[in-house]
């Protein structure tokens, strides 16, 4: 409905993504402050069940269920959301700052002639109903409060792991509203040939609650087994520094830092890494940081809550063993 808060929901492997649920939780809070409804947008194929699931979080579940929507295609998703937003006129549109959202929503902002704030770390309602988004500049050296003065909806993409998970309404209160999926195929220029995801048991770095990152102090690709073992015990995801990726010990997909991924887990282990600024820029919003390094001068200790001075090859296996018994 006009004036509502909307959240765009993504799913993966048959489940609503954690980051989408986090944004729904914030969306509910903003809708309550505005006295408006909370809508959620779901596009996909065979997503009936997920649409039902979302009625536990939102008042209205707009969902497009069509084979055309099975794989994300910017040209297709863009048309559907633009048409719906032009008709329903939401006040705010939120999504997690995922690869998909960062591909889709900037273009959508252009079409809707409105502003967009990316990678937001907090969202507040201003007195005049405008959304104040706090976002990092210069790799997090500075934060800026930005507001969309002109254009609606106000679009904001939120860094994953920024907000807590929402309460489940029981019984579910929302209603589902299937969308009539009509696509102007003459405007679909892109053809998605293939989508592959590595069969990973772990969450992506951007969504992981615990991350264990190794630096060049790991001394070789084979030693990352130590971090994999620790990650197994903690249900964590393993990250790597730029030096490690440049050495070919891990793939770029695992890189945390300014030219890799920006992460914000609850707990971050920095193991055998010095803490170069481009790395710190990618992890400095982690809630608790444990650094393990044998060099007392390593800059990473300035960015850590707990600094362990010692040999990682001695400390990490012991830590894994101890945690195995304790948790």
């Amino acid at each position: 409905m006009a004036g509502d808060v909307w959240v765009f929901a993504e799913y993966q492997a048959g489940k609503i993504r954690k980051t989408s649920l986090e944004v729904l939780s914030k969306g509910r809070e903003l809708a309550e402050q505005l006295g408006s409804g909370l809508g959620v947008l779901l596009l996909g194929s065979g997503v009936d069940g997920l649409a039902q699931e979302l009625t536990a979080y939102a008042d209205t579940v707009y969902y497009g269920d069509n084979p055309l929507l099975e794989k994300y295609n910017n040209d297709v998703y863009y048309q559907i959301i633009a048409a719906l937003a032009e008709k329903e006129k939401p006040h705010i549109l939120l999504a997690g700052a995922t690869f998909l959202a960062r591909d889709l929503f900037p273009r959508l902002a252009g079409r809707l002639k409105t502003g967009i704030a990316v990678d937001c770390l907090s969202l507040e309602m201003g007195d005049d109903g405008s959304l104040i988004a706090r976002r990092p500049l210069f790799g997090g050296k500075v934060l800026a409060d930005v507001v969309c003065r002109e254009g609606r909806p106000q679009i904001a993409l939120v860094r994953p792991n920024t907000f807590s998970l929402p309460d489940v309404q029981s019984p579910a209160q929302g209603k589902v509203l299937p969308l009539d999926v009509t696509v102007d195929t003459s405007q679909v220029k892109l053809e998605v040939l293939d989508v592959t995801r590595m069969a990973k048991e772990r969450l992506d770095l951007t969504e992981a609650e615990i991350i264990v990152t190794g630096g060049r102090g790991m001394k070789g690709a084979e030693n990352f087994q130590l971090l994999d073992d620790l990650a197994d015990v903690l249900g964590a995801t393993v990250g790597a520094t730029r030096g490690v990726v440049d050495n070919g010990w891990r793939t770029h997909d695992d890189q945390v830092g300014k030219s890799g991924k920006t992460v914000s887990p609850k707990l971050y282990f920095a193991v055998g890494l010095s803490g170069a600024i481009h790395h710190v820029m990618g992890m400095n919003t982690s809630k608790v940081v444990v650094a393990i390094n044998k060099d007392p001068q390593a800059p990473i200790f300035q960015y850590a809550d707990y600094g362990v001075l010692g040999d990682l090859f001695e400390i990490v296996p012991l830590l894994t063993e101890t945690l195995k018994k304790e948790i």
Binding site: A109, K113, T114, G115, I116, A117, I132, R134, P136, L137, G140, K141, V142, L143, A144, D145, V146, V147, C148, R149, E150, G151, N284, V289, A291, F301, Q302, Y303, A304, D305, Y306, G307, V308, L309, G310
Partner: peptide
């Protein structure tokens, strides 16, 4: 011609001093 306006800048929150363990 802008849509977004920066209201103010902040320093990022500072982490408390590190607890060293050795």
């Amino acid at each position: 011609g802008s849509k977004e306006e920066i209201l103010r800048y902040h320093r990022p929150p500072e982490r408390p001093p590190v607890t060293m363990i050795q």
